[in-house]
């Protein structure tokens, strides 16, 4: 019960910070801009995708629909959302140290392990809120504006056109997997937060790690081939795999496993660090 109360308190703390709303506002503005741009000149964007086919083929039907807009938005934003997550979660432990409230927190009748876990849980709730908001704006608002229809997806193997009836579950699983990816970012930043005494360090470090791993992952150099499969950034795009045909379930399961391993290990490191952290000085 104490653990749940503490988690609730942690979430209230997140809700009380103005910076927590930056993510929601940024998502709203960005998605609105993308939707407006697509409404104004979406056909040009589509012709870029279909240009190589249109010399011989024509695509009839409503290509520019809410399902495609949601896919475009997700593809554009999923890379940048980790910053919005880390902005809040990177502050959860180090912020307490910075403000000097960490000693008061540790004096509560709750173990340090539970303190850290409740912060993880509050961070996970905030990340869930961001993901749900992203899903609501990108999918439902886009469908409301553009209507629904078949989904055209461009992959490295070519074009895949999913019937409208076959799209809903792909988005559901896609958002769940995207949430797991963002949760890993949240866990990483909280873990780094356990080592820091100020807010900026964990936030910047989280982004630096993501950028570093992403660059390694995209470099076509054989030296990195051995470590690429174990970098969490490699698996952050796993949500796209639900839109392939056939769906590579084994590869998705592998991605989910690796992301879960990262979460468990990072929580473990944070617990170890916070439990031996000197908060008296």
């Amino acid at each position: 019960m104490m653990f749940l109360n503490n988690t609730y308190n942690e979430f209230i703390k997140i809700a009380a910070k103005p910076r927590s709303y930056i993510g929601l506002i940024a998502l709203t503005v960005l998605i609105s801009v993308i939707i407006l741009a697509m409404k104004a000149d979406g056909s040009t964007y589509i012709s870029f995708v279909t240009a190589s086919f249109e010399q011989t083929l024509s695509f009839s039907g409503d290509i520019m629909n809410g399902n495609l807009i949601a896919f475009i938005i997700l593809q554009m934003l999923i890379v940048h959302i980790p910053l919005l997550v880390a902005l809040v979660t990177g502050d959860l432990i180090s912020g307490e140290a910075n403000m000097g409230t960490i000693r008061m927190l540790a004096s509560k009748p709750i173990s340090r392990t539970q303190i850290v876990l409740s912060k993880f849980l509050a961070g996970a709730l905030y990340t869930l809120l961001l993901t749900v908001w992203l899903g609501f704006l990108s999918l439902y608002v886009a469908r409301w504006i553009f209507g629904t229809g078949d989904l055209m997806v461009l992959t490295s193997d070519g074009l895949i056109i999913h019937p409208e009836s076959d799209v809903e579950w792909r988005y559901l699983y896609g958002f769940l997997t995207a949430y797991l990816s963002l949760l890993t970012v949240s866990t990483l930043s909280i873990c780094l937060s356990a080592f820091a005494e100020n807010s900026i360090g964990p936030i910047v470090s989280t982004m630096a790690i993501i950028i570093f791993f992403t660059i390694i992952g995209t470099m076509d150099v054989t030296v990195f081939d051995a470590i690429k499969p174990y970098l969490f950034t490699t698996h952050m795009a796993a949500w796209r795999s639900y839109f392939e045909d056939p769906v590579p379930w084994d590869a998705i399961n592998e991605s989910i496993r690796i992301l879960i391993y990262h979460n468990v290990i990072l929580i473990g490191i944070a617990l170890y660090q916070f439990n031996r952290k000197d908060i008296t000085s």
């Binding site: 249109e54 695509f59 009839s60 039907g61 229809g149 055209m152 056109i161 409208e164």
Partner: peptide, 11 residues
């Protein structure tokens, strides 16, 4: 061509 969904046809 009035298609239910997206149809790929020869140009």
């Amino acid at each position: 061509i009035d298609a239910k969904g997206i149809a790929v046809l020869p140009k």
